[in-house]
Design a protein around this nucleic acid. Structure first.
Lengths: 232, 232
DNA sequence: CGACGATTTGAATAGGATCAATGGGAGTGG
DNA sequence: CCACTCCCATTGATCCTATTCAAATCGTCG
């Protein structure tokens, strides 16, 4: 890995408190790499050979079976993915592809397991990360099973809007085709969902969204921290 | 906790290798309790005050929002549930209810966190359990999103059949209403799914199922270890 | 026997997906 | 600068799966 990237990585929660020697050993084997959008990084069923950490960009985890495909989760910085498979030395359960330009840190799985066995501080950080991933998947599952397409879009817009300052406008970070996949619907259905939200003050112009009736929209979306709060 | 239950608990993977003193401290505060079917043990949104371990029976984890309800996962012995919430000292994301008569071990969350911070061996066992729970939820999610109702039932029947000796018959452990919930469908739909499977050699008589054309059924179900293998 | 709950069956409905066709904007080449 | 092309987005029509509502049947337990 390039030495000027190391301080950035060192500050990640997962590595912040671990012993210097162990961190160095991990980083000696690791590398930080750029990927363009729509690159498939891992394939389900393959043995877990690297731990991946999304430093910048976004990665879609998805699974396929019998001709169908489903998006499981979108991983945003700074989070790991497939940590569980690495720790168990098992096969990936999901495939992963970039949705934007990404900086991804790749750490060989064997090094992760070795240091995990040796460094108690790192082991505890792993638990924190892993429990966070677990809760994230559960929230994603609730979002998909307890809300219909329109509600998922409404909550997504409110979240993006709040993240971007909450001044009544929002800019989508991805194209609508990708957004549809992330929300678990077809592009056609996303168009219809936007149309359905027009009476709730949602005006769309390409990637620019303006929300003129936030309260109405919030009333429809019914956001809840048990689904929408990324922290808890 | 009753002292004669302790050896049983001590053998659970989660506790098997930890220091004696720490185990004793955990068990001093814990208790093993029996519950009848259909008892709600935890409610989403509540603070995590106990770690639950299913020693016998089965617990359905589910979530509700805006008048809808969805089953997330069924937890079978011997597994924990809501371990992630306990470790993070956060609110439960799911509610849980027994689906059968259960033996449940309840360990106060604060004790779990205390011993987790102190006992490295326990911390590693926690990681193993947590990573297992994570992968279990992902498999459950794939099962629901990549298969339709008939396929889910077919795979369920094959799994039960194999567990019970694989001699062409199987006995359902729960009533059909509960089975429908576990498979993520309505009771009416379960009936129709059974009817659909009749041409594949599935004969139903109350809770007794006989499978006369296993190969055909397997061909329809298309089981895969990436969804159906509980171990990996 | 009678009542109640569980299961099955039937008909109607809803939510999304799929297929097909049309618009619309960005980039390209004349 | 303008026409052309391509890809994305939208719109319309239809299909499919599963849910909902309603009614009939079955089984068990008083």
């Amino acid at each position: 890995m390039r030495s000027n990237d190391i301080p950035l990585v060192r500050e990640l929660d997962l590595f912040a408190d671990m012993a210097e020697a162990n961190f160095d050993e991990l980083m000696q084997a690791a590398f930080l790499q750029r990927f363009p959008p729509q690159v498939q990084l891992i394939t389900e069923g393959d043995p877990a050979d690297f731990l991946y950490i999304v430093v910048e960009g976004g990665v879609e985890l998805f699974a396929a079976h019998g001709g169908r495909e489903t998006s499981i989760e979108i991983v945003r910085p700074v989070s790991t993915f497939i940590l569980a498979a690495v720790l168990r030395d098992a096969a990936y359960l999901m495939s992963g592809r970039t949705v934007e330009s990404c900086h991804i840190l790749m750490v060989p799985a064997e090094n992760v397991r070795t240091i995990f066995a040796r460094d108690h501080v790192f082991a505890r950080a792993v638990v924190r990360e892993l429990s966070g991933r677990y809760r994230s998947v559960v929230k994603s599952l609730k979002n998909h099973k307890l809300r219909n397409a329109v509600e998922r879009l409404a909550n997504c817009l409110l979240r993006v809007h709040d993240e971007q300052g909450g001044n009544g406008t929002a800019t989508l970070q991805v194209d609508k085709r990708t957004l549809a996949a992330l929300l678990g619907m077809t592009p056609e259905n996303l168009s219809r969902a936007f149309a359905t939200l027009k009476p709730y003050g949602v005006e769309v112009n390409g990637r620019e969204i303006s929300l003129t009736r936030i309260d109405d929209l919030r009333n429809l979306a019914k956001p809840t921290p048990l689904i929408d709060d990324p922290a808890t």
